[in-house]
Amino acid sequence: MTRLRQLYPQLLALGVVLLLIGLISPGFFSVTVQNGRLYGSLIDVGVRVAPVALLAVGMTLVIATKGIDLSVGAVMAITGAIAATLVADGHPVPVVLLVALSLGLVCGLWNGVLVAFLDIQPIIATLILMVAGRGIAQLITGGVILTFNDPAFSFLGSGAVMGVPTPILIWLAMGLVVGLLVRRTALGLLIEAVGINRRASMLVGVRARFLILATYAISGLCAAMAGMIVTADIHGADANNAGLWLELDAILAVVIGGTSLAGGRFSITASLIGALIIQSLNTGILISGWPPEFNLIVKAVVIVAILTLQSPAVAEELGVLRDLLRRKGAKP
């Protein structure tokens, strides 16, 4: 498992972002219990981060293999549409979950086969589903926002277990399950090996194709889960907008988490913190009361600042600075 020390940069960035928001909007940190569930801006961050956090879990693994999955937003739309259709037709929640997750898995396997077995560049391979997926979703919903009224399914988006909103529990659980899966088995090590040097890995007998396929499959599953949460949240499937551009936020979360787009070492926990940083910014901007024209600028400035501080060049400079200070401090 990732050592806490390795998460310092991400935790520090999250801390600073939260602190800044707290300065601008003092009420940000207040958490109360209302109608038997936790309530407050901080909780909103935890709930609203769910789709990006879930996508980031899968995206981390895909990026670790030197790949990228642009289709996750579209897969959310597809699985959301299927889920809404089934719920509207009165199917029980377990059936809906099973079908939607299977569909997400199929989408992931499709990407995985294109990348791992047909050797199509990941960005192109997943672009196919990114473009076509939304069309498929629209076919399923018939071009309308497919609404339903089913408290059991809506529970996924707006319910709470012992006061904790369900989306928070879902993304935490998914992060934990996938994290354990890759770190308690050798999957994580082998994925990293493939991402760093696929040729060398294949020469020591690592089944690189299978591993790559598996990461896209997991990414598809995560996207399916995310798709169901947003569908449950608004009690409807919006094929045009569900998950739109979220693939980019997920990639950003992974990058903020310190996983290189060149593949290799990864940390799911760090990616989740990355997602939290992005969502904290979103929520922070919303409650700041600034005009919306500033949203993207503020977000961009903060993210550039975080990435700059994490860049190897700056890290080296900071290292030099630290050494200097230490040396000065050592002098009597």
Binding site: I196, R199, G205
Partner: peptide, 29 residues
């Protein structure tokens, strides 16, 4: 460089990689 080492992995991980690959992902060392 290109076919042998997995540059970013540690010496330990590089040593156990072939053994791990032959055991399969589900049986970690």
């Amino acid at each position: 460089k290109s076919d042998g080492i997995i540059g970013d992995l540690s010496v330990r991980q590089n040593i156990l990689l072939a053994l791990q690959a032959s055991r399969g992902w589900s049986r970690p060392i």
